[in-house]
């Protein structure tokens, strides 16, 4: 079988892999492929299940479901425009806050501001934020965040009430406390992925910046951040995706009120909160409608991720492949 048998000297141990070696090699390949396809299958099954259950509601409510603002189960009137607005608005606010702090944190932890050991400790603490259960964040929001920001919120409302963002008072749950807590929840994702992006910038690029006489700030702002921008953008997309789907803390904090308002202090609602709170008592029709809403949420998240990936691929190509 071995064509090279004659190449073998008396002491040589060279030989082909055994049948067992080949078996494990094949088996491993097959297993890896199977798992990869399984992931696709799970996603497809989810979409199919939710989609098929939503079909009756799609037939009854058409596209008007997305633009109507009433949700009244007794009259069989359903619309999710306020929830779509609330989902996007809360996630966007959280993204601005968490994006700023997350990127700053990543800079602080990767650009030699701290001794390596201390930086590692900080990193673990930030990552621990991701380990806190959502419901705990919700409780913390109710008992700590809302009382803490209420005086400032109401002062802003009284003084700058003509600005749309401050046009209502904060009576309890509302957009701002929800967005603040949401920001803390997505912060670890953004900070961790941004750190990876900054750490992937080759040392020689950093040397080049300092070698030209850049100050630390100039090197970070003009060289490190632009070089890592694709990865940091990816961090923001991931964070936004997480924020869109976050459920429990928002259901506790956002106020669950069907209104569309720019005001940061007004109660609002999100798709995920709507689903979580309405499923338990939903009648037959409402379940189908909620499936429609779930499908919309999934499609929004999917669209954000696809758009984010597309933008990253495009900018990567423009940068000449990145290497």
């Amino acid at each position: 079988m071995n064509m090279f048998e004659q190449a073998r000297s008396a002491d040589s141990v060279s030989g082909p892999p055994s049948k067992g070696d080949y078996f494990f090699d094949r088996a491993f390949q097959w297993l890896a492929k199977a798992f990869a396809w399984a992931i696709l299958a799970v996603v497809a099954a989810l979409l199919l299940e939710v989609g098929s259950k939503a079909i009756p509601a799609i037939k009854d409510y058409h596209i008007g479901f997305l633009t109507s603002t009433t949700w009244d189960a007794n009259k069989d009137q359903f619309g999710i425009l306020p929830e779509i607005w609330g989902t996007l608005y809360s996630s966007f606010l959280a993204l601005i806050i968490a994006g700023f702090f997350g990127v700053m944190m990543a800079i602080f932890l990767t650009q030699d501001f701290l001794p390596p050991r201390l930086a590692a400790i900080f990193r673990i603490i930030v990552e621990l934020l991701a380990a806190i259960p959502s419901v705990v964040y919700g409780l913390w929001g109710i008992f700590v965040v809302i009382p803490a920001i209420r005086p400032l919120a109401n002062w802003l409302n009284e003084t700058f009430g003509m600005i749309p963002f401050f046009s209502t008072s904060l009576s309890g749950p509302g957009m701002l406390p929800a967005a603040l807590v949401l920001a803390i929840m997505v912060l670890p994702t953004i900070a961790a992925v941004s750190q990876d992006a900054l750490r992937l910038v080759p040392y020689r690029i950093k040397e080049a910046a300092y070698g030209l006489g850049a100050t630390r700030w100039e090197a970070i702002l003009r060289v490190m951040l632009p070089t890592a921008s694709t990865g940091i953008f990816g961090a923001l997309v991931l964070g936004f995706g997480r924020a869109l789907g976050e459920t429990m803390a928002l259901a506790m904090l956002v106020g669950n009120s069907n209104q569309i308002s720019l005001s940061l202090f007004s109660p609002a609602n999100t798709l995920a909160a709507l689903l979580a709170l309405n499923f338990p008592e939903a009648g037959e029709t409402e379940v189908k409608v909620l499936m429609y809403a779930a499908l919309v949420l999934m499609l929004i998240t999917l669209a954000v991720n696809v758009a984010g990936t597309a933008i990253m691929t495009m900018t990567n190509k423009q940068a000449g492949g990145g290497r």
């Binding site: 080759p202 690029i205 910046a209 070698g211 850049a214 940068a319």
Partner: peptide
């Protein structure tokens, strides 16, 4: 040191142009 490096320039072993 920033000032020193503005008067004494440097070229490195690996070409290291910026991604711009």
């Amino acid at each position: 040191p920033v000032v020193v490096r503005r008067y004494i320039g440097m070229v490195f072993q690996q070409p290291n142009p910026f991604a711009m």
